[in-house]
Design a protein around this nucleic acid. Structure first.
Lengths: 346, 346
DNA sequence: CTAACAATGGAGAACGTTCTACGAAACATG
DNA sequence: CATGTTTCGTAGAACGTTCTCCATTGTTAG
């Protein structure tokens, strides 16, 4: 019984037999193709229901679509992936498409391997989240299968892109802090280890947005950027450097929440009260940011909208749109307990 | 250029042409089948390399394997999924197998839908993480495709199971707290809304382990279980109830870290110091548990080992093992700052 | 020297769909 | 009533593999 041989699958031929029509007819009904009388459609539908027919995706793949979309994840631990995924699946809810996720790792090679694997499995389209590849490589993939890239600024003619508007996000933070009265607002960014992303990367754009916003508020002299990494440790390290400045900043804008957590630890160790002595803001609005003991002011990316947009663009591509699209999603600022007016004006 | 028609795939026939042999021969080399001379093997290998041949998984699926394993995720937000995934992919590193993740949602229906989708895509095997289905449904799936179930106690003849030993985990916490001198140790568990899991669920086993351990330490009178839910809110609510007891507990063991976070909030609001007035322990050892401002004592499940074990069992099943296996992975206790000796003995 | 057998390679039929032709009605038009 | 023109339905060839035979060699035994 344990080794019960699997019962043969119900195929299109079984349905055809049952309904007393040809397999071609069943296929037509299945695809909603032209040339089917209402009577036949009903007969076939009934037969399919009775037999519990489900199309065999692999067989479909041999000729037409698989109705499968792939999402290449560059980092499974990234806390807003779930939101993006939810956005994607939510958007695809009514359709026949299924979403499968591929853990691509953080290496260009492993990501390429995963992307190849998805192509080999005849996926109809692929969404790549923050891929670490050159634009040329992405373009090459796009010649084989429609793709949408999330999280890379710049865009390209060969594929669609969805990005968070990091310029706006950075400005929201700077404006908020400046409105509170801060003048020396420092920024912690992530140092790219010579990867192929460059100025397209979110961290680079956030840093640029920070600089622009500071200048726009007439705080050009207050500009102070430290490049460590987007980790708890990186935030801690960056904050230690900043807090050792002769005129230390009254506010630190970390380019990522994880780094902001490190900043909080550094502040705590330095005996600085938050937000009394130091205001701290992050980016990404990860889950713990809202937790009481943290209560971190942060920029929210609305991964839901990003995911849904990516799904929409991908479907459009698959259905034939040629023109390339770059969609920019506006972030919002969530003000919480780690930001407030600076203690003493000078 | 944008609409460059995709270049035709390199097929087994192209390789055969190039090497001057038949497609059957190429297939044999590919599968490592019997009846291939070293000379031919070399020729074919060379042709494959030159042409950059990659097998078409969908075509393979029509006859043999797809070398694709599915992992059904019941909750993408679950913080130890990444560990499990890493364990799975790590184990499969050297092999030809690829892992694809399917977000199954938390509804039995949507999970069944995802599982069906994986079967329809001819996956060679499926790992189900904490599925919300009856054992009968799981057994039915297992007749079609080999499966391994993670996180369901009890096991079954039709499939393999990998579980965290929640009895041991609960005992580790109770022993730790009892060693510190606590006598009134309360437990917060998750109330199952009549789902088909029952006594198999981790929360039920953890609660049972808690009771067993309390009795073993002669603390039977101190047993106090509150059933809310494994969320921040549920932990908060449960703690409020417990702290309102005439003789309030000196320690709370939350069945999940997220709930423990809620307990911490309730303690904070009640003006109780942790661990001075109240010790708190969780389960799962999620990422933020180790963060300084939280520093939560918790039980670590080693998702890595769980994932790797599941992958191993699944491969064994696919290769033909008939006998069913239930593998239990022992958790470890990570002691951090939220547990300490009780303030005043009475 | 022949029979038996192992080793090697290839022909060709699946597998479950899609989709292009094409035929046979049914209907409209003159 | 002959002749288009739709509309409906079917044959059958793909698609890229796997894998079961079968044919052709050598090789060995008697």
């Amino acid at each position: 019984m344990t080794t019960g041989s699997a019962p043969r699958r119900v195929t299109i031929a079984d349905v055809a037999d049952r309904a007393g029509v040809s397999t071609a007819a069943v296929s037509k009904v299945l695809r909603g193709a032209y040339g089917v009388s209402p009577g036949m459609r009903a007969k076939v539908r009934e037969a399919m229901d009775e037999l519990g027919y489900r199309p065999h995706a692999a067989a479909r793949a041999m000729r037409g679509r698989t109705y499968t979309l792939g999402v290449m994840l560059s980092d499974t631990r990234n806390p807003f992936f779930p939101d993006i995924i939810e956005g994607v699946t939510g958007r695809l809810g009514g359709t026949e498409y299924q979403v499968l996720l591929g853990p691509g790792g953080d290496e260009p090679r492993s990501q390429a391997r995963m992307t190849d694997a998805m192509i080999d499995r005849s996926m109809d389209g692929i969404i790549l989240i923050s891929p670490v590849m050159s634009s040329a490589e992405l373009a090459a993939i796009a010649t084989t299968t429609p793709i949408v890239v999330i999280g890379r600024h710049g865009g390209a003619a060969e594929y669609d892109s969805v990005v968070d508007d990091d310029i706006v996000g950075a400005r929201l933070v700077v404006d908020h802090l400046a409105d509170l009265g801060h003048r020396r607002i420092a920024h912690i960014t992530h140092l790219d280890r010579g990867r192929a992303s460059g100025a397209d990367s979110p961290q680079a754009v956030r840093a640029e947005g920070y600089r622009q916003a500071m200048r726009a508020r007439g705080l050009a002299e207050g500009i102070d950027v430290v490049a460590t990494s987007f980790t708890e440790e990186g935030g801690y390290e960056g904050a230690r450097q900043l807090l050792a400045r002769p005129a230390r900043p009254t506010a630190i804008f970390a380019g990522a929440d994880v780094a902001a957590l490190g900043v909080l630890r550094a502040a705590y160790e330095a005996g600085l009260s938050v937000p009394g002595d130091l205001s701290v803001a992050g980016y990404d609005n990860i889950g713990i940011a809202s937790l009481k003991p943290i209560s971190l002011t942060s920029v929210d990316q609305d991964g839901h909208v990003i995911g849904a947009t990516a799904a929409r663009l991908l479907i459009e591509r698959i259905e034939g749109r040629g023109r390339s699209v770059l969609s920019s999603v506006s972030p919002t600022l969530v003000v919480r307990g780690t930001t407030g007016p600076p203690a003493g004006r000078e």
